[in-house]
């Protein structure tokens, strides 16, 4: 035979050449379902815990050491106990209203529109796609081009709000060093400060923050200071996923520790005061 292969022609199905006829939906042999499953369980458990705690309306403040859980900060309803409401109590005590009614929605929005969490829940909850080279769980797909997902583009506003809320959380952690009238320091302070540090790192590692800090510039050489800030945020940004999970952990731990102290399950390990 002195011939080469036949010329590829127009496919039988008309203008579109068909793809390779492979019946298996995916040929992946590794445990591709493990990562989305862990995400599903992890996020699901956290959201359940947080929802229960927020609507418990109790066990959020340790008066003796001035520990306030981040889930109730700033405490704004009439239900807030003496000393926990730093900004007054402008809101009525209605069961559906969380104590931190002005901040929790923004924190929820910040995490919902976060570029990491979007990946996590699109994969684990919406199965779009559950893993790479595994088929989408939906027949139609429009991405983030229309309502409601087009509002993912508002992430930077949630970031601005999260910065303000981080400042409030920082203030909470600082005034917790005052037990009664004197200086006090216990394990709860370490947990509160650790949580705030991680919250700051998570907030500052945000992709929108990276863009605002300097990513939007075309010429770094004209803006050396912003370039330095961008470089710093970029280093944090690489760890955005880890920080997202670490902060979920520290938030739950802080809240649980304070709840346990209030319920008297154990007492705070005090170093000073």
């Amino acid at each position: 035979m002195t011939t080469t292969a036949t010329k590829p022609g127009v496919g039988p199905s008309g203008p579109h050449n068909p793809r390779a006829a492979i019946t298996a939906k995916t040929l992946r042999t590794d445990r591709w379902w493990l990562a989305p499953l862990i995400t599903f369980v992890g996020l699901g458990a956290w959201v359940t815990y947080a929802t229960v705690r927020v609507f418990m309306h109790d066990y959020y403040f340790v008066e003796a050491y001035h520990y306030l859980t981040p889930f109730y900060s700033p405490c704004l309803t009439d239900r807030c106990v003496e000393g926990s409401a730093l900004f007054g109590t402008p809101l009525p005590s209605w069961w559906i209203l969380p104590e931190a009614a002005f901040t929790l929605p923004f924190l929820l929005l910040f995490r919902l529109t976060c570029y990491y969490y979007r990946k996590a829940y699109y994969r684990a909850f919406w199965l779009s796609p559950p893993a790479c080279a595994v088929p989408d769980g939906h027949a139609k797909y429009t991405g983030e081009t229309r309502f409601p997902l087009i509002f993912q583009n508002a992430h930077r506003y949630a970031f601005y709000a999260a910065m303000v809320i981080s400042l409030i959380n920082t203030y909470d952690a600082i005034i917790a060093f005052r037990s009664g009238d004197s200086f006090g320091f216990g394990l709860g302070n370490i947990i509160l400060v650790g949580n705030v540090v991680m919250l700051w790192l998570y907030t500052l590692s945000c992709h929108s923050c990276r863009h605002i800090a300097g990513g939007r510039l075309k010429h770094f050489s004209k803006h050396p200071v912003r370039y330095r800030i961008w470089t710093f945020v970029s280093k944090l940004n690489v760890r955005h996923m880890q920080l997202a999970w670490i902060t979920l952990g520290t938030l739950a731990l802080t809240d649980f520790y304070i709840m346990a102290l209030e319920l008297g399950w154990f007492s705070d390990l005090r170093f000073v005061g």
């Binding site: 990946k119 699109y122 779009s128 797909y141 429009t142 983030e144 081009t145 992709h207």
Partner: peptide, 24 residues
């Protein structure tokens, strides 16, 4: 280019043999 269709699930970054951080 249809950038709004991308839902940043990062599979492009996962498969890139040159390890370009396409998504980030």
């Amino acid at each position: 280019q249809g950038m709004g269709l991308c839902n940043i699930t990062k599979c492009c970054t996962e498969v890139c043999p040159e390890h370009i951080k396409i998504t980030d």
